[in-house]
């Protein structure tokens, strides 16, 4: 694929810790992707609308408040309802290992916890896109 991959980097929920999201956004850009950055305090509805209007290949979300079990699956559900099931969804943040299987089950393709090198995230995205 020679077109740039388009990624929505979003901060759902109310926590304001965007260091990780911003570092990932920069790293994705440096890997040649087009990163649509949403800013803080995004509702699942806002994230889904952004992903659709931007025709994103990927939605990457970061949460550090512990609200991931609630908010991540909601984004997946809303995207599916809109027929946008060809978007790869990944998540990151302070997320306990125990919660990961449930999130994967809910349709999050991968969860990147603190300490994950950005190169791992980049490779995962490149290798797991749902469309060409």
């Amino acid at each position: 694929m020679d077109r740039p991959i388009r990624v929505v980097v979003a901060k759902p929920g109310l926590d304001g810790h965007d260091r990780g999201a911003k570092v990932v956004a920069r790293a994705l850009r440096d890997a040649g992707m087009e990163v649509i950055y949403t800013g803080l305090r995004q509702t699942p509805e806002q994230i889904v609308e952004t992903a659709i209007q931007e025709d994103a290949d990927v939605v990457a979300m970061s949460i550090l408040s512990g609200a991931h079990n609630h908010l991540f699956p909601k984004v997946v559900k809303l995207l599916n309802e809109k027929g946008a099931d060809d978007i790869l969804i990944v998540g990151g943040g302070v997320i306990p290992e125990d919660d990961i299987p449930g999130l994967i089950e809910a349709g999050i393709a991968a969860i990147f916890t603190p300490g994950t090198p950005t190169s791992v995230t980049i490779d995962f995205i490149k290798n797991n896109l749902k469309r060409n």
Binding site: G13, L14, D15, R41, T43, S65, G66, A67, N69, H70, L71
Partner: peptide, 22 residues
């Protein structure tokens, strides 16, 4: 918790999933 820090009551829509978390 975050809703308190941002001045929302626990029953505000934006508080969903965040009440008592941090």
């Amino acid at each position: 918790d975050l809703p308190t820090q941002i001045g929302y009551d626990s029953d505000h829509p934006l508080s969903e999933g965040e009440v008592g978390k941090v």
